[in-house]
Amino acid sequence: MAEEAVIRAQRLTKRYGATVAVDHIDLDVRAGEIVGILGPNGSGKTTTILMLLGLTEPTAGRAEVAGFDPLRDPLEVKRRVGYLPDSVGFYDGLSARDNLAYTGRLAGLSRREIDQRFTEVLARVGLPDVGRDRVATFSRGMRQRLGLAEVLMKRPSIAILDEPTATLDPHSTQEFLGMIRGLKADGTAVLLSSQYVIDVEARGDAVRNQLAAVPGVVRVQVLAPEIFRVDCESDLRAEIARRLAPSFDLLGIRFAEPSLNEVYTRYFDEVRDAA
């Protein structure tokens, strides 16, 4: 029997006067699943997320998040959902710890729980030594990681991430996507929005699983919906086609030398691994 959806939207619609921001969206996300909302700027991704959080009222349709109606029980929904907004902001004058402690207290965590979880989540997002530093000194990538740490602090059953990689460089994007996969491994349902690139890990996961056992395949990346990049140590097109053909309609496989972007990412990966 299929697992019950933790996020369910039926014909969710939002209008601002004559403008239709969201037009009859249907959505099902199950526990441990990563689902993406794709679309260009202004296509209503953030509005959909705000409706799921109960921060704006839908004009029509209904939603259910973690078994609660966001409109009627927004507090219950927000207790169970970790939300990372696009361009996340922090109180610059406060330390990373104080920022997370504030939202942790608002989320109903005790001081003891905050102390216990804080070190753990900072280590998990790769910021183990900056807890006492003021956020004003953080780079954009560090802020984004801190935002993810805030989501992790709540130990939510659902994580909603609004364009989490939009402002990150390619290397940080890959690291961040790795962290998002970590959320999935915890059994957290992940709903993420993106204006491009990440077809969101659902398709990527399937391709990765198919190619996991192929020797010489280093990494599988999702470039855009239906477009994947497979990093190989040699030309493995025939083997890849053989593995994917039973499950996917392959439109074609192209071999290309690594781009400058790719070299950049690989270089920093190797430097990090060496360290």
Binding site: P85, S87, G89, F90, Y91, A107
Partner: peptide
């Protein structure tokens, strides 16, 4: 941009 973070809490 802290408003959405704060209002995302219960």
């Amino acid at each position: 941009r802290t408003l959405s973070r704060v209002l995302a809490q219960p």
